[in-house]
């Protein structure tokens, strides 16, 4: 978009805008594909927030694409159409610029169209990404729910069922968090996720072991049951803390961190 703006500025010298029909058509085709895929995603998603937020981004991209097509058609008909006056303020924040005059005509439409397409696509990706994060968090919360019942397990039979329930859930969380951290560009967030996941993996078998010890102790008369319960609760608490931290970091964006700036 910045480069288009510069082209627009150069057009002040009276140069004609070239015929952009073919590349604009390629952009329109790509937009049409995104609209189709986006609508399919909305229709097949069970995430109410995505279903609410994504249509707005799609409309924005769709409208911007039309703007681009219109501008292209009009510039083709009149290549000298309405040159720019002052456009630097388009990409300089308002508090840093000493002037702010409008630009006119089809060249502006072209720039606004390209900008709208990129911003709309970016918003759509963000909306999709946030939905993916919510999916992982749902799995994390299932693990938290299981951990909360660790304290009430008092028989081997219940423990076997507990392990059967918890294991697939933990495996899923582990797989999803691991693939998420690989996608992140923010090194600090990646490191925290890796560290928490390692802790969860280490703690899980120790927690099961502590639960087994507690069950065996109460089956044999209960001497030392209090300490065994304390140990089990401590381990369940540690795991809960690690999962809670994973949830927190999953929701962070790069803009939350000063160092990104």
């Amino acid at each position: 978009v910045d480069r288009l703006v510069i082209l627009h500025e150069e057009a002040e010298d009276g140069n004609a805008m070239p015929d952009l029909s073919r590349p604009v058509q390629a952009v329109s085709n790509a937009v049409a594909n995104l609209i189709k895929v986006g609508r399919d995603t909305i229709n097949s998603s069970d995430d109410p927030i995505l279903r609410q937020d994504m249509p707005g981004s799609l409309h924005r991209v769709e409208g911007a694409s039309r703007l681009l097509e219109d501008a292209c058609a009009m510039l083709k008909a009149d290549p000298y159409s309405q040159p720019a006056r002052y456009v630097r303020d388009l990409f300089v924040p308002h508090h840093q610029t000493s002037f702010s005059l409008p630009i006119f005509g089809n060249r502006k439409k072209l720039i606004d169209g390209a900008r709208g397409i990129l911003q709309g696509t970016s918003a759509l990706l963000l909306c999709f990404d946030e939905s993916e994060v919510r999916k992982i968090i749902r799995e994390c919360k299932k693990v938290l729910d299981y951990l909360a019942v660790a304290e009430v397990i008092e028989t081997m039979e219940d423990l076997v069922q507990f392990v059967k329930d918890l294991s697939p859930c933990l495996t899923k969380v582990s797989r999803e968090v691991d693939s998420r951290q690989k996608e992140l560009t923010h090194q600090v967030h990646r490191d925290i996720l890796i560290r928490c996941l390692d802790q969860v993996k280490t703690l899980a078998p120790i927690l099961i072991c502590s639960m087994k010890i507690f069950i065996q102790i109460i089956a044999q008369g209960g001497k030392g049951a209090e300490e065994a319960a304390e140990n089990r609760n401590y381990l369940a608490g540690r795991m809960t803390d690690e999962i809670t931290e994973i949830i927190r970091v999953l929701q962070l964006t790069t803009y939350d961190e000063d160092e990104w700036e």
């Binding site: 082209l7 952009l20 590349p23 995104l34 995603t41 990129l118 696509t121």
Partner: peptide
């Protein structure tokens, strides 16, 4: 996956549009 691919196509097409505009403009200048 499909959304990411669609978004990449848009980025590529928009970039090609700007390149087309730039090179044509340079020739004129």
């Amino acid at each position: 996956e499909m959304i990411l691919e669609a978004a990449k196509s848009i980025a590529a097409a928009t970039s090609a549009l700007v390149k087309a505009a730039s090179s044509a403009q340079r020739e004129l200048i």
